[in-house]
């Protein structure tokens, strides 16, 4: 799936592939130690540049404050 910015597509694909593999072969099997951290850091830096360019950073910050959704009990 495309990223918000075309220049992050390759990083996103590498991260998604890493995560999906980890989810199926580790997480669901009971090994919940986080993985793919290095590529996630690179990918996140890339999308945050695009998020700031599109002025979505304040919208996201406001949403995190207004609706933190920090526990599974959130929502309806």
């Amino acid at each position: 799936m495309s990223s918000i910015s075309p220049e992050c597509n390759d990083l996103k694909k590498t991260y998604d592939d890493c995560f999906n593999k980890w989810y199926a072969t580790k997480f669901l099997q009971g090994d919940t130690t986080p993985a793919c951290e290095e590529i996630f850091t690179l990918y996140r830096a890339c999308i945050w540049r695009a998020i700031k360019e599109k002025n979505l950073d304040t919208l996201i910050a406001d949403a995190r404050k207004e609706k933190p959704f920090d526990t599974p009990d959130a929502g309806q």
């Binding site: 799936m1 495309s2 918000i4 998604d16 199926a24 986080p34 996630f40 990918y43 999308i47 996201i60």
Partner: peptide, 24 residues
């Protein structure tokens, strides 16, 4: 749940333009 994490793109999702992970 595996499918749900990689749901997009699919042939019924032309309205979804992008999906990014902000934090995990």
């Amino acid at each position: 749940t595996s499918a749900n994490f990689q749901k997009y793109p699919n042939e019924h999702s032309s309205h979804v333009l992008s999906v990014d992970i902000l934090s995990r």
